[in-house]
Design a protein around this nucleic acid. Structure first.
Lengths: 339, 339
DNA sequence: CTGAAAGCGCTTACAG
DNA sequence: CTGAAAGCGCTTACAG
């Protein structure tokens, strides 16, 4: 049996399509008798409105794209959970777009080759520069997430990365660390995320009167615990010594703790370690991870709110919003430490 | 400036809409001269085909729903990464649907109130029973993933959970464990996943001549390391003693290792532990996790292949496919252990 | 190889 | 409160 259309319902109920449409969309000014009659026809025919027809008529799809490098990275999967839940509350569904952090895929996000698929885009770029983002198709609303430099024309939500990095760096220093390394940035072509966190790390060192030693910067091949593990192991084997370690993200910190343990270096006794993101696993390392926790709920809801305004037609300059963060203290760099 | 339509391009290029459509869709039989003329107009007008119009005309959206309880659970985020990547290769994009494992949300997945949004659904139920799934709207193709009992009418891909659970249980026994506990099933209303894995656990005990002791079944409040941690801690405090622990999933195992460590119980010396899923973090626990690794690539590609066939019109009985798995040995229950 | 026209299934002014 | 009709932007037989 072919799928019933709005028109079929109208015929069976003996009313116009407009009336059926009103009932389907829950429009209030329909007489109870008519409504009942229509509802009956809907049930009899097992009618479901066709979204494509509706989208074409309204110009809306109720879909939002959520774009970032890799959903299997815990920060992104936790973000996706948060965004998806909040989006649903606002009547939207979420389309997943993975870029793998490649330039081509990131370009495709901001210069989509088709229209009418999503109403708006939430995008956390990994590599795409501000100027290219600025040239994005202006006809589809975009809100940027994360550390990338954002063009003035585009909305942007992030936490104060420099401040947070300064904070954790100074905290490690306050625990007595004097040779504080940084772990997890790219070997070449620094991501915006690494840039701002390194900047805060440097400021933290300065504030504590510690010298910046480029030899203490330990790069990693990928955003993964395995790469970080390898990087730390190699650094230790090459003779690098440090008593503090600021990690670009929790995955790096998890890899680092593993590598340090394998090398017989004790955390926090020999090295204090901080992470970034406070992913679920940060409570389950041995010891637990001191880490920067972004206010993800605020981040997601702020971004969604701005995106909704853009979809509704708001067309002013980009708004650049900072949401909060806090440092969560666990065993890897306790709030107070007796050495 | 209003968005250009196919018709605008046709007018500018001085050809019919049909010809423009042919060019846009890459149809081969268009003369080079015409193609160039049309392409020029497309570029000049910055034309992008509208997906809603296309969907309405073709009856396809190129969208697949991926539905499961919670994207922040590592197994699901790794699955989403895999499915999303493979789907893209096949020309599909992925819509994320989280059910939180609730009955209502799971019902909504199989009895969608709208049509024409997605071409097909990949669905891993947490609680929905086979009979309700069988009554699903037959007009939208569904392929089931995971352990839920599937109706004969519906395609289904899973690994052999009973065999895998038997295998790890026997492995723990082979290492000398005699009181092998099970961790991570629901306190009430067992999920299908827990059921099959418990069944295999029981078979493994039998095969090893070990008694089934209901007291060794440690339930957890949620699929999370934190709940598992709590459950194990409480069990230990209540005096439960065991020398082997089969965990329903890696999250439970991660929580268990944490709890055992906190209680001064050594893994693997005092207790050998196995997990399930081989999530990325399984290599980074201390010690590393011996765990069941499903062949996720095979799972995803098999499911997508079957879904594509259904979308193309295949309408026979459901196919029920087992994909492979292997046990990955790490420190928590090494391949060979000298006690 | 290309054109003119119908149709996909909705919504929404415009009338009444 | 309800109807008749146009229109959203495509694709696709059907002709030529």
């Amino acid at each position: 049996m072919a799928r019933a259309r709005l028109q079929d319902v109208a015929e069976v109920a003996g009313v116009s399509m407009k009336t059926v449409s009103n009932v389907v969309r829950g429009y209030v000014h329909v007489s109870p008798a008519t409504r009942a009659k229509v509802q009956r026809a809907i049930d009899d025919l097992d009618y479901r409105p066709n979204e494509s027809g509706r989208s074409l008529a309204t110009g809306r799809t109720g879909l939002l794209a959520l774009a970032f490098s890799d959903i299997s990275i815990p920060y992104y999967s936790e973000l996706a959970r948060c965004v998806s839940t909040l989006a649903r509350d606002r009547g939207y569904r979420v389309l997943l777009e993975q870029t793998d952090g490649t330039l081509d895929a990131e370009r495709a996000i901001v210069s989509t080759s088709e229209a009418g698929l999503v109403d708006g885009v939430l995008f956390q770029p990994s590599t795409l520069g501000s100027s290219e983002i600025a040239r994005h198709r202006s006809d589809i609303p975009v809100v940027l997430l994360g550390e990338a430099q954002a063009p003035v024309s585009v909305d942007h939500v992030m936490i104060d990365n420099v401040a947070a990095a300064r904070e954790v760096t100074r905290h490690l220093a306050s625990l007595g660390a004097r040779r504080i390394a940084f772990l997890g940035h790219e070997r070449s072509a620094l991501s915006p995320t690494s840039k701002v966190r390194l900047a805060g790390y440097q400021e933290g060192l300065e504030a504590e009167g510690l010298p910046l030693d480029m030899g203490l910067l330990v790069a990693s091949d990928a955003v993964s615990s395995a790469s970080a593990d390898r990087a730390v192991t190699e650094a230790l084997e090459a003779g690098l010594r440090f008593d503090g370690l600021v990690c670009r993200d929790d995955l790096a910190a998890i890899g680092a703790i593993h590598a340090l343990g394998a090398a017989g270096v004790r955390v926090p006794d020999d090295v204090v370690v901080s992470g970034w993101d406070d992913v679920a696993m940060a409570s389950f390392t041995q010891p637990g991870l001191t880490t920067v926790r972004p206010d993800m709920a605020a981040l997601a809801s702020t971004a969604l709110g701005m995106l909704e305004q853009r979809i509704a037609g708001f067309d002013e300059l980009g708004r650049h919003v900072l949401v909060g963060h806090e440092v969560v203290y666990r065993g890897s760099a306790p709030e107070n430490l007796q050495r």
